[in-house]
């Protein structure tokens, strides 16, 4: 069972770090995807970057 013994610190920090990296990868994927989707929607709607500036 869960008796990780005297090396518990090492085991938990290994798993903790892996979780952190996995979470970071997922977060990065989600945020990046959202940002690109928004930028694309804005561009396809026809307004300039950041929604400003005159249009030709």
């Amino acid at each position: 069972m869960m008796e990780t013994g005297r090396h518990a610190v090492f085991i938990w920090s290994a798993y903790g770090l892996t979780c952190l990296v996995a979470f970071g990868l997922v977060l990065r994927a989600v945020l990046d995807h959202r940002a690109q989707t928004r930028a694309l929607a804005r561009l396809e709607a026809g307004s300039g970057p950041a929604g400003s500036g005159p249009r030709g």
Binding site: A29, H33, Q36, A39, L43, P49
Partner: peptide, 19 residues
């Protein structure tokens, strides 16, 4: 993750060419 990254990358390229 790889598939999601590829999808985002495709979008990024579309954004770039549209810009």
């Amino acid at each position: 993750l790889h598939l999601a990254g590829m999808r985002t990358e495709i979008l990024r390229r579309r954004v770039r060419s549209l810009t």
